[in-house]
Amino acid sequence: MKKYIVTDKKDTRSGFGAALLELGKQNEAVVALCADLTGSLKMEEFAKNFPTRFIQVGIAEANMIGIAAGLANGGFIPFAGSFANFLTGRVYDQIRQVVAYSNKNVKLAASHAGITLGEDGATHQIMEDIGLMRMMPNMIVINPADYNQTYLATFATAAWNGPVYLRFGRPVVPNFTSTSEPFVIGKGILFEEGTDVTIIATGHMLWKALEAWDILKEMNIHAEIINIHTIKPLDIKLILSSVQKTKCVVTAEEHLKNGGLGDAVAQLLAEHLPLPIEFVAMDDCFGESGTPDELMQKYGLTTEAIIKAVQKVIARKNY
């Protein structure tokens, strides 16, 4: 079980930017590319400190992916940054051919993922990116929960030899994970132990799952909270051992139900341990303009939604 304490509130993208700067100092092979969103991606400090290793590509994401692949072929570790929307669907074929299939050591730094992108609306909000990226052979998919975890995940991403999709977000959210524990790609983290239900949460939804834990405890429901920051490869061992004990699962993610963490866990359970599962995720629809909180509320990505899902899945378990 991991200790956590809210130290401050920060955006996950700033965790990426801070780590990228530090990586730049430590490793001359690290280069960064951006398609006219340097400020949004928090890449300015890297660009300022390492101008020859920063490549401003302009508004040309497809070209950026190709250039990143060429740099990776030359032995560099390129971090290509844009909004998650423009770094997945828009360039799926480029990523597929010259990064994943060619197995190039390219890191896709995807900011503003999910509905919490907010006011820009559905053209910019992508809720299908985890699905797209976990479908891709050779691709690692990471969705950290807060600033600290994003910071550590960025280092782990650089150290990993192969393509990685690193997904983070725009809004300021509680920063609570520990920096003293190592971040291991493919290893989930047990945040709370419990016996009645396993809640598996990723990204911004981890904090909401922890909030739900307190309320559930008062309701005499003892939830086990697992943070899955690496959606691919999935920590099968941790998930199965928990569900063996609790006999039911709720997944929570800022993504469509289709294709996301819930899908991955459901597939795992269907194959190895078919038990009730409920999904806290967005239905099959596009988002809209609004503040991040309003949107999370409207599309059912809340602490209350997790609690309701827990009650429902426990009822199904006992049926």
Binding site: I55, I65, G66, A69, G70, N73, G74, F76, Q94, V98
Partner: peptide
Amino acid sequence: GQGLSVAIGAAIAK
């Protein structure tokens, strides 16, 4: 349409 971008990346690497 992708090879030119890759070649550019390789040229920058050089």
